[in-house]
């Protein structure tokens, strides 16, 4: 684990007096969820536009790659945790077809509302449910889903090990967890460029387009505080996932971690 990720030790457990990272700040354990909610309430309206703008559209390829790994078949059941505006849900609904079921969940009602509207606008109804739910305490029976996906959500979760355990619990035996998340650049020479982009251009874009530079500064900081590839891999294994592995995308800017429930 690198120094940047030292704060994640506090992610396991939590309680009175304990602190957790919120970007580069340390905040009270109980305070992080409220502050994350406030960030996403602020950016919800421009979230999709900003995603395209910030990544120059590449986030669509990252999501497409993650979707290609689900192994979902018609009739399958999938859960999109922290699904927000529903990009991944949309892809998984196509995979499971009319006879399947996908649950789009998010802890933030404002983001979920955007996701639900987007699905309805795409003509998708009947085999998809939208649900406000906390990743750490998913309100589903054990062994409910063939695939659980969390895309660009895990870094905002206060207690990541608890969220991983919760996702493992709701997976069926043989089911797969896919974590799509920003990570640590591994390509030579990429890090300085990426830092400049994250801390100078990203907040500027946030200020100009979403009229909210602070929220986008938090996004950049939260990415730096998120566990790197190897640390997250170890966390997956510790939570009980088998055959865990990861793939780097765009030189490690994003990583896809996968693990199975056996």
């Amino acid at each position: 684990m690198n120094d940047d990720n030292a704060g994640n030790d506090a992610n396991a457990g939590g309680g009175a007096g304990q602190t957790v990272d919120f970007g580069f700040e340390r905040v009270a354990w109980a305070d992080k969820a409220r502050r994350v909610r406030s960030v996403f309430e602020s950016v919800a309206g421009k979230y999709d536009v900003m995603n395209d703008l910030m990544s120059l559209g590449v986030h669509r390829l990252w999501k497409q790659f993650a979707l290609s790994l689900t192994g979902l078949r018609p009739g399958g059941r999938a859960l999109d945790v922290a699904g927000g505006t529903g990009d991944l849900t949309l892809g998984m609904v196509k995979q499971v077809g009319k006879s399947g079921r996908v649950v789009l969940s998010d802890v933030n009602p404002a983001m979920l509302e955007k996701g639900r509207d987007r699905l309805l606008d795409a003509g998708i109804a009947g085999n998809v449910e939208c649900l406000v739910a906390d990743a750490e305490t998913l309100p589903f029976a054990d062994h409910s889903f063939d695939c659980v996906m969390i895309g660009f959500g895990l870094r905002n979760v206060t207690d990541k090990p608890a969220a991983l355990r919760s996702m493992l619990r709701v997976l069926k035996p043989g089911g797969q967890l896919i974590v799509l998340e920003f990570s640590t650049p591994t390509a030579p020479g990429l890090k300085p460029l990426y830092d400049t982009y994250s801390f100078r251009i990203l907040p500027l874009l946030g200020r100009l387009v979403a009229k909210d530079a602070d929220s986008y500064r938090y996004l950049a900081e939260s990415i730096r505080m998120h566990p790197d590839q190897e640390t997250l891999l170890a966390m997956l294994r510790e939570a009980g996932f088998a055959q865990a592995l990861y793939h780097n995308l765009s030189g490690g800017i994003v990583a896809v971690h996968r693990g199975y429930k056996l």
Binding site: S68, L69, H247, V256
Partner: peptide
């Protein structure tokens, strides 16, 4: 890291 081509082959 597992190469992307291996993931595509697996899928």
């Amino acid at each position: 890291a597992t190469p992307l081509w291996l993931a595509s082959l697996e899928a």
